[in-house]
Design a protein around this nucleic acid. Structure first.
Length: 263
DNA sequence: AGTACCACCTGACGGC
DNA sequence: TGCCGTCAGGTGGTAC
């Protein structure tokens, strides 16, 4: 479930392992996960380049190449990166494998093939073409309030809408709403500025804390919902409520009915 | 504009 | 043991 925190960790991993080492060999085993470029063309374009930096926008990772283009990576639900010394160390379902000048490999794996790979010349044009809103962590409080005030419908749908705010998916939207003590079906229009401000603050804290803890769910605070998804367990707030699964914004949502009363 | 639903894709898991 | 249905998830498309 790579959302903003996981992708930020992938970015840091890529920067720590694979920067400034020319790509000496490219292997592409992707089909439909390639956007507007063939595997052959992608391999040809990457060959001989080096990655000079990496940036993240929402759930998208953009690796800047020395020729000015960007390799774009999206991780779907099961995607991740691995840097490894030997070819046999590559993960199952590797779709793209780069061999670097130091002999190591950087592999992109995506078991369920919901991820996407691409190569773009212009970063801003890519973000516009993908219809991505501002990154959830780059967004400032006032901009967030302004965005939300233009919005109707349910709060869960709003914070998961990548064209409004980029980076939050199903898992972190549940976490943010749980910690804000807000029901996923709460109407955005019914929320006051104070409530929206609290939501923003919680969103920011949840995302930065998750990144600080390397986006490993087991490392998250015990008061969080994240490790109790999928079972009707007790609410981690200690309220004696029992977590339940509902549908909101067309998605499965986990809530505590006591902490997050229905609107 | 917002919602609801399907399709894509495949590993994990529960039931029998 | 092994088969089968269901679920998970992000996104993109379509119909309302």
């Amino acid at each position: 479930m790579p959302e903003l925190p996981e992708v930020e960790i992938f970015r840091q991993y890529l920067v720590a392992t694979s920067l400034k080492k020319p790509i000496v060999e490219v292997e592409v085993r992707a089909g439909h996960e390639l956007k507007r470029i063939s595997g052959k063309a992608l391999a040809r374009r990457l060959q001989g380049c080096l990655i000079k930096g990496a940036e993240r926008h929402g759930k998208h990772l953009l690796a800047q190449l020395d020729d000015g283009a960007h390799l774009t990576l999206h991780f779907g639900m099961t995607g991740f990166l691995r840097y490894h010394k030997h070819p046999e160390g590559e993960p199952d379902h590797t779709r793209l494998r780069l061999k670097l000048t130091n002999g190591y490999y950087l592999s992109y794996s995506c078991a369920r093939r919901l991820g996407r790979l691409g190569l773009v010349r212009d970063r801003d044009r890519f973000l516009a073409a993908m219809k991505l809103g501002p990154d959830a962590l780059a967004l400032e409080r006032n901009a967030f309030l302004n965005l939300m005030q233009t919005r109707r419908g349910q709060i869960k749908a709003a914070i998961m809408d990548q064209s409004l705010i980029a980076g939050i998916g199903n898992v972190y939207s549940d976490e943010v709403l749980f910690q804000s003590r807000m029901h996923p079906r709460l109407a955005v229009q019914s929320m006051g500025l104070e409530q929206l401000g609290k939501l923003f603050q919680t969103m920011h804290r949840v995302l930065t804390t998750a990144i600080d803890r390397r986006a490993v769910p087991q490392n998250m605070p015990r008061s969080w919902l994240i490790n109790r998804r999928g079972k009707q367990l007790k609410c981690p707030s200690g309220c004696a409520g029992v977590l339940e699964n509902i549908t909101a914004a067309g998605r499965s949502a986990w809530i505590c009915p006591k902490c997050q009363p229905a609107p």
